[in-house]
Design a protein around this nucleic acid. Structure first.
Length: 269
DNA sequence: TCGATCCTGTAG
DNA sequence: CTACAGGATCGA
């Protein structure tokens, strides 16, 4: 489910619920979630450590623990991370769980088991994140930097936006929505986007992500409800055949990089 | 740049 | 039953 806004919402909720807590025990129910790391390594190294801070980089969640270690979590497609009041009542899809002091549970839930949980020494953080690109909601995301990245890429614009090494955090939904908002054709190469459209795209990315963070944050704040942020109204995503909200032409779906891309063939040229 | 892979769930 | 899923990586 998660792109940058949902991951951000997860982090905010985690900060409210888990900051300062200590780890009593950690259990890996599905060894593949820590691969290639040994589950026993996480289970033996984490107890006794305290959760000192929680950071997001792109779609990566970094839980800084005491004594210089970091839990690095990626939710991929179906992952979720949240605190429950009593770890004994964890859900069956909990692939990894942590008992916090006081008996609460920090749950890594993931139906498809594509997500990852790793433990790193804090000193290795830079190496772990070396391929994570510009944060689109940070001051580093200037039009200049964005333009530089686009001009260096011969990829189709949609693939370019989803490339985490360029801009970190956009996924299939918000990449499509940003391209629609800026009227950019998803098949057009990134380097060929006109200057004004590039500026529009730069703004659209920030606007959409800001809006989506608010919606996701509000949705995730609902106690006990960990649903997807359906609150964000998509203009093109998953709307194949429906009329474009601008021109009325049917939204089209094409395949790019093995994923579905939705766009308006008239508005996005 | 494509296809396979990692997995499971759900919609058609 | 098949197709597809808001992700990322790998090899051909």
């Amino acid at each position: 489910m998660p792109e940058l806004p949902e991951v951000e919402a997860v982090c905010r909720k985690l900060r409210r619920d888990a900051l300062g807590a200590s780890i009593v025990q950690l259990r890996v129910e599905r060894p593949s979630v820590t691969r290639p790391q040994d589950p026993a390594h996480l289970e033996s190294e984490t107890p006794g450590r305290r959760i000192e801070s929680i950071e997001r980089r792109g779609k990566n969640i970094l839980i800084h623990l005491s004594a210089g270690h970091i839990l690095h979590i990626h939710l991929r497609m179906t992952g979720n991370l949240y605190v429950i009041p009593d770890v004994r009542f964890r859900p069956s899809l909990a692939r990894l769980w942590i008992e916090l002091d006081g008996g609460r549970g920090l749950i890594f839930e993931d139906s498809r088991v594509l997500g990852k949980v790793h433990l790193h020494p804090a000193a290795h953080l830079a190496r772990v994140l070396k391929d994570v690109g510009i944060e689109p909601l940070s001051s580093a995301f200037t039009l200049d930097n964005f333009t530089r990245a686009a001009k260096a890429s011969s990829q189709p614009s949609k693939i370019f936006l989803m490339d985490q090494r360029r801009v970190a955090g956009l996924g299939n939904i918000y990449a499509a929505e940003a391209l629609f908002r800026a009227r950019v054709n998803p098949r057009q190469s990134a380097r060929s986007i006109s200057k004004p459209k590039l500026a529009n795209l730069h703004t659209a990315i920030q606007d959409i992500l800001h809006h989506a963070v608010s919606s996701a944050d509000a949705a995730y704040a609902e106690p006990g409800h960990f649903a997807e942020g359906e609150s964000f109204p998509c203009a093109v995503y998953d709307r194949e055949g429906e009329p474009c909200t601008i021109c009325g032409k049917p939204i089209r779906r094409i395949a790019q990089g093995g994923r579905s891309t939705y766009f308006c063939p008239r508005c996005q040229r």
